[in-house]
Deep mutational scan, measured.
Amino acid sequence: MSIQHFRVALIPFFAAFCLPVFAHPETLVKVKDAEDQLGARVGYIELDLNSGKILESFRPEERFPMMSTFKVLLCGAVLSRVDAGQEQLGRRIHYSQNDLVEYSPVTEKHLTDGMTVRELCSAAITMSDNTAANLLLTTIGGPKELTAFLHNMGDHVTRLDRWEPELNEAIPNDERDTTMPAAMATTLRKLLTGELLTLASRQQLIDWMEADKVAGPLLRSALPAGWFIADKSGAGERGSRGIIAALGPDGKPSRIVVIYTTGSQATMDERNRQIAEIGASLIKHW
């Protein structure tokens, strides 16, 4: 067993022997301040990774656009098919120029040779490549099948209805392509620590998230040296922004954090800054 596999296998073990965790309302004060600064709703939840206990939450059962955070769930569904012998990570998928959609920095470079399922998941999570996500959605049967996968996990809230990039439209009061912070946090925890996926697939999923290259201005910008984070960000229309993450000190994750916002007129930089400040408060009061 590799060191990384050992780390993920012992996530519940280490967490069980940690000192009790206590909620700190100071972080919620910052979440509410972010709402004021952005002029928009902000949803927040913080779960203990081992027990699933909610440590703090704000608007945990209000719907927010998922945006690209759905790509972690998508690759979880792909990995479940791999575990069941219905898919192979090494299978190569070929596609054409007509398949390319807006923001496809990886797939646009491989029109000639195609990409493997493993490479597509890596591109979808680490670079948020939209064509990679659409190609992977095709392998599982489309958005409705991802929703069905989530329902089978016990998540009857999260739903995907459309493809990239239309799913980022974020129309107010439109339930399409949305989740709730509580539902997303619980589902992410199941994917990373539950028995739904094999140990190898859980490790692969967290490795992809740990290698995320496009979430630097968010929670990662607030992390002290030595902290662990595996995350996936999302951005959408109407001032929408979000991030889902597993993080913790001492090089291992111990909490799940989900943050979503929508309806702001603020710039992307300002949305990023507010999420980073929430992260800084979380870490300060850990």
Rank of each mutant, 00 (worst) to 15 (best):
A182T: 12
L135T: 06
A123R: 01
L38I: 10
L79N: 02
P65V: 04
E277K: 10
L120W: 00
Q97Y: 15
F149Y: 10
A148I: 13
Q274G: 09
Q88N: 13
K71S: 00
D174S: 07
L120H: 03
N272E: 06
T267S: 13
M268Y: 08
I278G: 00
V214I: 07
F14C: 09
F14K: 02
H151E: 12
V214N: 07
A246W: 06
G226V: 04
M184A: 07
I125T: 07
R202E: 09
E119L: 03
T69I: 04
K232P: 00
L111W: 09
A77Q: 14
I125S: 03
I278Y: 01
N98A: 14
P12R: 05
S104T: 06
D33T: 15
T112Q: 15
S51N: 12
D174C: 06
G194R: 09
R189W: 13
V8G: 08
P12I: 14
S254V: 12
M184T: 03
A235V: 05
G263Q: 07
T27N: 05
K284S: 14
A225V: 14
H5F: 06
R255S: 03
H285P: 02
T179L: 01
M1Q: 01
S221C: 11
S221W: 09
D174G: 05
R189A: 13
A225M: 15
S201H: 15
F17T: 12
R41L: 09
G279Q: 02
T112L: 15
W286Y: 07
A23D: 05
I283K: 05
I259A: 04
I283F: 11
I93L: 12
A276P: 01
L199F: 11
P25S: 11
E61M: 14
G242Q: 02
F228N: 06
G234P: 00
R41Y: 10
D177T: 01
K252F: 10
W163N: 11
G154C: 06
I11Y: 11
L282M: 14
L160N: 07
V82I: 11
T179W: 00
L38S: 08
E169N: 11
A133F: 02
V82W: 07
G236H: 02
A34Q: 09
K284W: 10
S264I: 04
S2C: 08
H94R: 13
E237H: 11
A132M: 00
M67K: 02
V157I: 12
M180E: 15
L136S: 02
A280G: 12
I256F: 05
T27E: 03
I259T: 03
P172K: 10
T262Q: 02
E119K: 06
A276H: 14
A148Q: 14
P65D: 01
K30L: 12
L38E: 06
K53A: 14
M127E: 13
K53S: 13
M1V: 04
A16R: 04
M184V: 09
A170M: 07
D155Y: 01
F149C: 07
D177E: 02
Y103Q: 04
M66S: 03
D36W: 15
G248D: 02
Q97W: 11
E210Y: 10
V21F: 06
M180N: 13
I275A: 02
P12H: 13
